[in-house]
Computed example of a mutant assay.
Amino acid sequence: MAQCAVCGADVEKTSPEETDYRDDEFAVAQVEYEGETYRFCSEEHRETFEADPEEYV
């Protein structure tokens, strides 16, 4: 389990297509930044992060 880098919501690290279950929250988007993978609960939060990543790192 990971957390959305912007709001802290729980998101799974894998996508629904990679598993046999559908009940969990999955990361809608992810970004590689300075060698780390950041996951997000929405595309909007990915865009927010990309606009100012240092605020969330």
Rank of each mutant, 00 (worst) to 15 (best):
V28H: 03
A51L: 03
D10Q: 15
A9G: 04
F26T: 11
P53R: 02
T37D: 08
T19H: 04
C7Y: 02
K13T: 10
D52H: 07
T19L: 13
G35W: 07
S15P: 00
E18D: 15
P16W: 06
A27F: 10
T48Y: 01
V57L: 14
V28R: 03
F26D: 09
G35E: 12
T48H: 02
D24V: 02
Y56K: 08
T14L: 13
E18P: 01
C4K: 02
E43P: 01
E47Q: 15
C41N: 04
M1F: 05
G8F: 05
D52S: 12
S15A: 15
Y21M: 05
E55A: 15
E50R: 07
F49I: 10
R39C: 05
H45D: 14
H45N: 12
V6N: 03
T37S: 06
K13V: 06
E54Y: 07
A9K: 15
T37I: 10
A5V: 08
E34I: 02
T19Q: 14
E54H: 11
E54A: 14
F40K: 03
V31K: 05
S15Y: 09
E34L: 10
Y38M: 04
E32C: 00
E17H: 12
H45Y: 04
V11G: 12
S42E: 06
T14P: 00
M1L: 11
T37C: 00
D10I: 11
F40Q: 02
C7S: 09
V6Q: 05
E47S: 11
R39I: 07
D20C: 06
T37M: 04
A2M: 10
G8E: 11
E36W: 05
C7D: 08
R22C: 02
E12L: 06
